[in-house]
Design a protein around this nucleic acid. Structure first.
Lengths: 177, 177
DNA sequence: TACAGATATGTTGTATAGCAGATGATCGGC
DNA sequence: GCCGATCATCTGCTATACAACATATCTGTA
């Protein structure tokens, strides 16, 4: 996978200093690659992968309100409004006013939405297996670790932590400029 | 399923059917969490994490042209133009016309750019260790697997693959594994 | 050499997404 | 019943991806 071709074109060697060793690059590249593949599988759902994820949450037996969904899916609440509009127009989800608090809308999947979600869920799992095949037997290990990391980073009570880390780092090595 | 606290705030338990078991959600949540933390550490660099990654590539002893950088970093080439403009204005990188092909511009870090990159590199590694601490001893394993996946998904010759997979899935939706 | 096609970069226009702020409806405490 | 807080929505602003076109340069061919 590495080395030098005969016409002088250089190919990259494993190099700690370059961007491919950067955790941010790894996460970004993996996310982009996945999103591209998922976009094809989920092209029939308004909003693509995000619409699918929203639809997935809407199939829960304890449907969430929009604020919770925005935080959980990492979508801005103003964008979520339009995303729900699109899914509602397509007949996949409905806004159910919470009888206990009429400010809140519980987002619930319709029968049509549940059927579509189930169908695409199967296709998506097949595609994921394709992508993860490169990891061989370690694919399961990878998913388990990624799940731990994702839940940790997505937890709301992590934000305070970030500020603390940033301040610590600034003290030890302040940004030049 | 779900546990309920006194004021209606919900806490989620493990649930296979919900979005937290979705690979796309895991990748997205991890990427967003990382980007948020990295944005604080790299706030002194124009373009934030993306500027840092570009700067990293510009410190290579075999500087790449813009087209290659766009593909490697997953940035659109029209946006890359402005990103390089900003870094150039800050005196961190320079556009060096390739003497062998004057259409191409090799993006090279200045001494100032290299110093800043080195400093932020250290801070970034500290932050990454903080984020990955939740994985314990498996952090190294996770990074190794993620690196394999990222390189695989970012390789250009993967795109044909995606179309093939998509077509296969449309024909039949078998359950994998 | 002259020219046509291909490639690298830059520029413009459009659509989407995140973010901050304001608005209206509703809830809870006083 | 009044006041502040909360949820959803709406309105600008900015950043980014994407497509289409322009310009400069290179490559291959007659």
């Amino acid at each position: 996978m590495i080395g030098e071709t005969e016409n002088g074109k250089m190919k990259r060697m494993a190099d700690e200093t370059l961007v491919e060793g950067d955790l941010g690059w790894m996460l970004g590249a993996s996310f982009r690659g996945y999103a591209k593949a998922a976009g094809q599988v989920l092209s029939g759902i308004p909003g693509g992968p995000r619409g699918y994820q929203l639809l997935t949450e809407a199939t829960s037996d304890t449907p969430a309100n929009q604020g919770t969904l925005a935080q959980r899916l990492g979508i801005d609440r103003t964008v979520l409004t339009y995303l729900i509009d699109d899914l509602e127009k397509a007949g996949l989800v409905e806004r159910h006013p919470d009888p206990a608090d009429r400010r809140q809308r519980r987002i619930v999947a319709t029968a049509k939405g549940r059927a579509l979600r189930e169908d695409r869920h199967t296709a998506l799992r097949a595609m994921e297996a394709h992508l993860l095949a490169v990891l061989g037997d370690d694919a399961g290990t990878f998913q388990a670790l990624l799940c731990i990391l994702a839940r940790h980073l997505n937890s709301a009570d992590h934000h305070l932590d970030l500020c603390t880390i940033a301040e610590d780092l600034e003290r030890s090595s302040p940004t030049p400029r």
